[in-house]
Nucleic acid binder design. Structure first.
Length: 374
DNA sequence: TCCCATT
């Protein structure tokens, strides 16, 4: 498809391109803006102005990502299923911390579809990720999340949805439960498709008693994400919590922060590092960097998602690869996994070496080097 | 009283 009025990277954000690789493109119109008297409509009848890409079949939103997962890891995971047009992990503007969700836009709609079917529900560390088509971005879908409290303990998610669904389309709902007993805390969330729907629900349900309930419920807009819920300075730094204040946090955080502060770089990429004097050659986050693990005795049908599922629970995984036969496209029985942190890699190896996967027993070890990686 | 769904 050729759109005459397209501009070279006209939609380029102020940050580097999706891959973070290469220079920031300069917006250069391919053709001059029509002057006075020139018909404003294109031959195909499309309105003038920047072309609106239809991303509805290629653009995915990925929710419930582990806090530690970086944009590079996100790209690596989803890139195993097809060519990615752009990938963005959404992060807190001031702390740079992941907000636990991101977007992956594929080149091909078929790959997006494949990603949903193979990665939705994937367990990564403590999370179960959700992969679904992103709704077209619009102001009307923002701030549509409600906080509900005072729910009867017996009320389940289904019933809560029934109560709220009269006000609009529900995107997500959740009831918080006690971690040990699993009993409802009487507190939940409802995210509507549209903010106006949420507003109506507040008006209609706040202070109301659900059928048969003894107490009225409270319905209000939820705190915006990134707002602190307790704890102080340490809550800004999950890596300090996980690794202890005296230990070094994973280096990708430190480099990421350094790049953000010093250069205003929004995205972390190997090329960005190489562009920073004094960091060249550090290579963290570069493809192949980290601890490479050799996994042997995979089934012929094995695919990348198997490796993510096996190793993801042990920590930061930056890359997985199943080696396939060129002719048959079947796994040749082995693959590789790259993990950022030595301790996590060592734990994964100790746990997974000898692990029985189906009718096979895996052999897992650090890759013994022959340094000719791509 | 708060589960990280709109770049």
């Amino acid at each position: 498809m050729v759109t005459i009025l397209s501009t070279v990277e006209a939609q380029a954000p102020s940050t580097p391109g999706p891959s973070g690789c290469g220079p920031v493109p300069v917006a250069v119109p391919v053709v001059a803006v029509p002057g006075p008297g020139v018909a404003a409509a294109l031959p195909n009848g499309a309105p003038p102005g920047p072309p609106m890409a239809d991303d509805s079949k290629t653009n995915l939103i990925v929710n419930y990502l582990p806090q530690s997962m970086s944009q590079e890891e996100l790209r690596s995971l989803f890139g195993s299923l097809g060519d990615i047009e752009s990938c963005k992990l959404v992060r807190d503007k001031v702390t740079g911390q992941s907000l636990g969700y991101g977007f992956v836009n594929y080149v091909e709609a078929g790959d997006a579809d494949k990603a949903i079917s193979t990665l939705n529900g994937l367990k990564l560390q403590t999370k179960t990720i959700k992969v679904s088509y992103a709704r077209p971005s619009s102001a009307s879908i923002r701030d549509a999340n409600l906080y509900v409290s005072g729910l009867p303990k017996a009320m389940g998610q289904k019933e809560m949805e029934q109560l709220f669904s009269q006000y609009g389309r529900i995107i997500t709902s959740r009831i918080l439960v006690d971690q040990v007993t699993g009993v409802s805390r009487g507190v939940g969330f409802i995210r509507f498709d549209k903010r106006v729907e949420a507003e109506e629900a507040v008006r209609g349900l706040h202070g109301q008693k659900p059928l048969g309930a003894a107490e009225p419920i409270t319905v209000k807009f939820a705190n915006s994400p990134g707002q602190k819920s307790g704890g102080a300075l340490l809550s800004l730094c999950p890596s300090a919590r996980r690794y202890g204040a005296l230990h070094h946090p994973p280096q990708r955080f430190r480099l990421d922060n350094l790049l953000n502060v010093a250069y205003g770089v929004k995205r972390f990429s190997p090329l960005a590092i190489e562009a920073v004097p004094g960091l060249a050659g550090v290579g963290l986050g570069a493809p192949g960097a980290g601890w490479c693990i050799f996994v042997y005795n995979l089934a012929p049908e094995a695919d990348e998602s198997v490796l993510w599922q096996l190793f993801g629970p042990f920590g930061a995984v930056t890359n997985v690869k199943v080696i396939r036969d060129f002719a048959t496209n079947k796994c040749k029985g082995f693959g590789f996994v790259t993990m950022t942190n030595y301790e996590e890699a060592a734990m994964a190896i100790a746990s997974l070496n000898g692990y029985r996967l189906g009718d096979r027993v895996l052999q897992v070890s650090f890759k013994t080097s022959k340094q000719h990686k791509a």
